[in-house]
């Protein structure tokens, strides 16, 4: 696949977590508008390998917008200029021939750079491990009608569950806050009967871990929901705030 787009890329290169990085300029030519952004990077890396240079390290896995691995901050936008797509779903037709594109890794103290555009997002895993699940032994699947769930709640929980944990919210937030990510899981489980039993414990523990990881706090600018590739709403953050208030004031549960 080749095309006729010529672009100038400015990509963040950083040898490892301890070293100082910088933006390096790479011209790329014959790019097809039908390529995805990552395929364009594959072309560039091929070119670098042929020239005997170190290829650019970047995260990717499924390349169909569900794994949440691709994490590029493109021209000042998490996952690039288009709404509700991940970097792998962004196509070169979203750019113009001759464009200069600046590509940086997510910037957050809780997401340290591993190499080039790859950041360590295990802080998200540690938050989920603190309660982003239900520990009820369910046995065989119950008949669905045994657990009536109002349609409104089911829809809200489903929308929150669409979070792929890519970290675009943290990357976008001026405070590098993880509130949208954490609240999506808290809200999803607090809305469903299966999640209610552990709701207080969950929100206290997950928030405590979120703070420990060094994420900032929420200023309600709403930028996260604009850049979220899955359209997670900040209404989830309000649900988490309410759950936290309830867990702290009403319940006797303590963070563990």
């Amino acid at each position: 696949m080749s095309g006729n787009m010529n672009l100038t890329l400015k990509v963040w290169r950083q040898k490892n977590g301890g070293s100082k990085g910088e933006l390096v300029t790479y011209p790329v030519s014959d790019i097809s508008p039908d390529m995805s952004f990552l395929e364009m990077f594959d072309v560039l890396n091929d070119q670098l390998v042929t020239e005997g240079k170190e290829p650019i390290a970047f995260d990717h896995d499924c390349r169909e917008g569900i794994c949440g691995m691709c994490s590029m901050h493109i021209n000042g936008h998490a996952h690039g200029p288009k709404d509700q797509v991940t970097t792998c779903q962004l196509h070169m037709r979203s750019f113009k021939d001759g464009d200069t594109i600046v590509v940086e890794p997510w910037r957050a103290a809780a997401f340290p750079v591993v190499k080039d555009l790859v950041v360590d997002r295990s802080s998200f895993d540690r938050i989920i491990a603190k309660g982003g699940f239900i520990s009820v032994n369910t046995g065989n699947a119950k008949d669905a009608n045994n657990l009536p769930i109002p349609k409104v709640d089911a829809d809200k929980a489903f929308e929150a569950a669409a979070c792929i944990g890519c970290g675009a919210c943290v990357a976008t937030c001026k405070n590098s806050s993880a509130m949208l990510f954490v609240s999506a899981k808290v809200a999803q489980l607090s809305l469903l009967p299966q999640g209610k039993a552990e709701a207080s414990q969950r929100v206290l523990n997950m928030v405590a871990q979120m703070d420990e990881e060094g994420f900032g706090s929420c200023t309600n600018t709403g930028a996260c929901e604009v850049e979220c590739p899955k359209g997670i709403s900040i209404q989830n953050i309000a649900i988490m705030n309410k759950e936290y208030l309830k867990a702290s004031v009403v319940s006797e549960q303590e963070a563990q």
Partner: peptide
């Protein structure tokens, strides 16, 4: 929480 700033930051989201 953000020790290194972006070179390019688009502010249209807020």
């Amino acid at each position: 929480a953000r020790p290194v700033q972006y070179a390019v930051q688009n502010e249209t989201a807020s």
